[in-house]
């Protein structure tokens, strides 16, 4: 049994004064696939979003308790949410393509990290799209708008971070 990558203890998730979800304790193992299953609106997304601090962007949302990532308290006073998000990726339920070409969509994450080298970006884009089994489908349309392609969601796969998925496997 490997140690947990993410631990949640006595966490309560609030929107304004409404307590939305309570998680008494939860461990998410390293190098495993963990799925949250539940009816619509039960709080799966809230918990997932709390793990990479996306809830910071929602006015009035707050978390009490402890969420640890490799031993770091994610809500500790010294934690930089941007760094958290760079290491804990998130793939959204709906594909969220940017209004850019497929190539630029996929390269968005690496570029944020400061990769400017064209050849290196090309390699990353190609391998990411191959990993997502989309390469053959889109390789001739890389410069076209990504809006209509599923490839949007592959923005997430080129982020060099372990991913949280809120994609429904259906």
């Amino acid at each position: 049994m490997q140690s947990a990558a993410i631990e949640i203890r006595d966490a309560e998730f609030f929107y304004g004064s409404t307590r939305a979800v309570v998680v008494p304790g939860l461990e998410i193992a390293k190098n495993r696939i963990t799925a949250f299953i539940g009816p619509s609106g039960c709080g799966k997304s809230t918990v997932l979003r709390a793990i990479n601090r996306m809830n910071d962007l929602v006015p009035g949302a707050r978390v009490t308790g402890e969420i640890r990532f490799n031993g770091h308290d994610l809500y500790g006073p010294d934690i930089d949410p941007v760094e958290v998000r760079r290491r804990i990726g998130m793939v959204f339920q709906k594909p969220n393509p940017f209004p850019k070409s497929i190539y630029d969509n996929v390269a968005y994450g690496p570029r944020l990290l400061g990769i400017r080298d064209k050849a290196r970006l090309d390699t990353i884009v190609e391998s990411s799209l191959r990993d997502a089994a989309l390469w053959d489908e889109v390789k001739n349309d890389l410069k076209k708008s990504g809006t209509r392609f599923r490839a949007g969601s592959s923005s997430g796969c080129a982020s060099p971070a372990p991913s949280l998925s809120s994609q429904r496997s259906s």
Partner: peptide
């Protein structure tokens, strides 16, 4: 969200 989610 998509942008912040990627660590921007």
């Amino acid at each position: 969200e998509a942008s912040y989610g990627l660590g921007a």
